[in-house]
Amino acid sequence: MPELAWFGWSLLAVAAVIVGLSKTAIPGAGTIAVAIFAAVLPAKQSTGALLLLLIVADVFAVLMYRRHANWRELWRLMPAVVAGVALGVVFLAFADDAWVKRTIGVILLVVVAITLFRRRMTATVDARRPHTAAAVTYGTLAGFTTMVANAAGPVMSMYFLARRFPVKEFLGTAAWFFAIINVFKVPFSIGIGIITPSSLVLDLVLVPAVVVGAICGRWIASRIDQSVFERLVIVFTIVGAVYLLVA
């Protein structure tokens, strides 16, 4: 168990609640949890501890939205995501924390800009029509960012927004996507030493906060307006990207 002051534990508890909310109501907010964990814990330890909490939240998200997933979209994304995870493993072997944060921050801002531009230019086009190039690009970026910093949420949020998914289809597809990918990452994370017995104990303490966040998120998602939902996703993505650039 890491030795933390009460303030540090309080911040981690808040971050754990945000993890639950991000999986069941406000995708993109999870980047804030990434930032808090990285500020309180050593970089590698924070990544491993957060991954396990994300998996717990994934379970709740899948149970809540399992009937709303777009499986055709998921299968289209998976090959590119696997390639991105492999690139992330290689990148982690050579890059330091500063490079990792700044690289992901730049990627997120570029993704937001491209997504908003595409939505503006294709307002009259059927956005739900499959676009292979977009799936490959976003999928590779998601695999890369999820491996190096558990920060793929904003990338995939921008993709699902571009595809004009309704709130529940958005959340259901994201729930299955991250449940599969996060479990896939576990052996790699153990192999490079970022999941440890200490992180397991830490997560046991924080799991109740994740559960509270997930349940509150379900209540919010059933009442949130589509336009408000989309604006929140974009705002949280930009905030997370800026943090990663300046931290």
Rank of each mutant, 00 (worst) to 15 (best):
V19I: 15
L206C: 05
A241I: 00
R218G: 12
K23S: 11
V201S: 13
P154C: 06
N70S: 08
M147D: 06
D97H: 12
M121H: 10
F117L: 15
L53K: 00
R129Y: 11
P2T: 10
V125G: 06
M158D: 04
V100P: 01
S189R: 11
G20Q: 09
P197G: 07
M1G: 11
S46V: 01
T24L: 11
T115F: 07
F184Q: 10
V40L: 05
F229V: 05
T115A: 12
T103G: 14
A209D: 01
A33G: 07
V183F: 14
E169V: 11
F7A: 08
P79Y: 05
I238M: 13
L4R: 05
H68K: 11
G8K: 03
G20M: 09
L244M: 13
F7M: 08
D126I: 07
A69Q: 01
V246G: 10
M64E: 11
A221F: 07
G143I: 08
V210C: 02
Y243V: 13
D58A: 07
F178M: 01
F177A: 06
F37V: 00
H131L: 14
I220P: 03
K23N: 11
T132P: 10
N150S: 09
F7H: 09
R76H: 12
F60W: 13
V110I: 11
P2W: 08
L206K: 03
R66S: 11
I180P: 06
V228T: 07
T145M: 03
G153T: 04
V210E: 02
L4E: 04
A152C: 08
S222D: 15
V125Y: 01
Q45K: 05
L51G: 04
I104R: 01
T132L: 14
Q226H: 12
A221Q: 06
G213F: 05
E230M: 10
A61N: 09
A174Q: 05
T47C: 01
A134L: 15
L232E: 00
T115D: 04
V235W: 09
S157P: 06
A29F: 07
Q226F: 09
H131V: 15
I220G: 07
S10D: 04
V56A: 10
S157F: 03
G217P: 02
M156A: 04
I55M: 07
F165H: 12
A127S: 14
P166N: 13
A221V: 08
A209T: 02
T24K: 14
V89E: 07
V167D: 03
L202T: 04
T122A: 08
P42G: 01
Y65M: 08
L245D: 01
D96V: 10
A13P: 05
F184C: 14
V90G: 08
A127H: 10
T196P: 02
M1C: 12
L109F: 03
G172H: 00
D126K: 08
A214G: 08
I190L: 15
L74C: 08
W75C: 13
V85W: 07
V111Q: 00
W9Q: 00
F188G: 14
R67K: 12
T137P: 12
S22R: 09
